[in-house]
Design a protein around this nucleic acid. Structure first.
Length: 408
DNA sequence: GTAGGGTTAG
């Protein structure tokens, strides 16, 4: 189906949703989300999205599907398509709900289209949508997402005053983020003091933003001071704030410290997630402790976690570095099986390595599978790689199915 | 019903 046709259909569907309640061909939103996660092709993503977009249930459930679709389109620089898609939602009667229009504002931000986000925010008067901190927060987030960090303080000063509402702790959270992103965590601390004066709750989230900013600046002492202040203020640490600490300790290859932080989390009753374990794994890989890294991978499931694309990418990358290409190939097959294939560059190293070790059949099978699993715009890159390495012929044994049907 | 952690690499 062509994109323009599809978009026309989407528009039709969202208008139709105003009068009729459902369409029998639509797939469930949870099914769509799962499909969207593994779909890198923007056209196909749009197709999946269009089959659920007329089934708007609540902002939170449809936002994820919309965000994924917009992100795919933005990555392909298809801004006109994003506009058509998001503008079509303005025909929906739910546009008078502040939370509904807020998802559109946020999505424009995600695409880096802040001018459209602001235009939508300004349209609220005409559309008859009431304003509060909710849509304001969406606008501020859109500003940050579009990397216009310097504009956030200005909006923060002007908009609540203009429309007569008060910024809430989330609004302040976005403001803090904008200062941190501009490289001024000092201004973020000032903002935190201001929050305290105004009686606005400072949460673990706000501290996490600032903690991360100081680590990124290489100011570890200040980061530690923020961490201690957070605890002193009675904010409970959670998995996200530990992941910030894990990230910065794993970058220095401090395997013992990272291991210690993971244990600290468990002692506090926090369950490390895939991101936490990925940091531990990365750290072991960097220290050349590949066996320990593999143990982390093998233990993921019993810890209630699933490997993601970064898990496979990290393992495959470091297996290639230590010339364990066959092991890397086994890992590649596992990644295909669970639809978490790493990026092209990582796999390129692996194909080269397999050829170097005369594992021609494996290299051919890899290319064959990758061409099927990557989005269409990668087809040329894979063909070129095949040609360079003289792998273009059909794999010698069998058809080379790697997607769970054999060989895995 | 919104804010924080995944360019975890070369």
């Amino acid at each position: 189906m062509s994109t323009s046709l599809l978009l026309r259909q989407v528009r039709h569907l969202s208008t139709a949703a105003a009068t009729t309640s459902s369409s029998s061909s639509a797939i469930s939103i949870s099914k769509a989300k799962a499909k969207l996660r593994s779909e890198l092709d923007p056209d196909k993503a749009l197709e999946i999205y269009s089959s659920v977009s007329n089934h708007y249930t609540s902002p939170v459930s449809s936002r994820y599907a919309q965000d994924l679709t917009v992100k795919r389109l933005a990555k392909s620089r298809r801004f006109a398509d994003i506009e058509t898609l998001l503008e079509s939602h303005k025909n929906d009667p739910k546009i008078t709900q502040e939370s509904y229009i807020s998802t559109l504002i946020r999505s424009y931000g995600l695409a880096g289209m802040f001018d459209h986000a602001l235009k939508t925010y300004n349209q609220m008067d005409d559309l008859g949508t009431p304003r509060s901190a909710i849509s304001f927060n969406a606008l501020l987030s859109a500003c940050n997402q579009s990397k216009l960090f310097n504009q956030v303080p200005k909006l923060f000063k002007e908009i609540p005053q203009k429309y007569g509402f008060l910024p809430d702790r989330v609004s302040y959270g976005v403001l803090v983020k904008s200062y941190c992103e501009s490289g001024s965590p000092e201004l973020a601390i000032e903002t935190m003091n201001e929050m305290e004066d105004k009686g606005i709750e400072i949460t673990t989230v706000t501290f996490t933003t600032i903690l991360d900013a100081f680590y990124k600046k290489g100011n570890r002492d200040e980061a530690e001071r923020i961490w201690n202040e957070m605890l002193k203020k009675g904010c409970l640490p959670d998995v996200a704030v530990y992941n910030v600490r894990l990230m910065h300790h794993s970058q220095g290859g401090e395997a013992e410290n990272v291991k210690g932080l993971i244990e600290e989390m468990s002692n506090l009753g926090l369950k490390p997630d895939t991101i936490s374990y990925n940091y531990l794994m990365t750290c072991y890989c960097k220290c050349g402790m590949m066996d320990e890294a593999k143990k982390v991978y093998q233990g993921l499931e019993e810890n209630g976690c699933y490997p993601n694309a970064a898990t496979f990418r990290t393992l495959i990358y470091h297996m290639c570095r230590s010339e364990d290409f066959e092991e890397g190939y086994e890992m590649f097959k596992k990644s295909v099986k669970v639809h978490k294939i790493p990026d092209f560059n990582t796999l390129k190293h692996l194909v080269h390595g397999l050829v170097k070790k005369s594992k021609i059949d494996e290299a051919k099978r890899m290319c064959w599978t990758a061409k099927k699993k990557f989005p269409a715009n990668f087809l040329n890159a894979w063909r070129k790689l095949e040609e360079q390495l003289d792998l273009a012929a059909i794999p010698s044994s069998g058809t080379g199915h790697l997607d769970g049907s054999d060989h895995v």
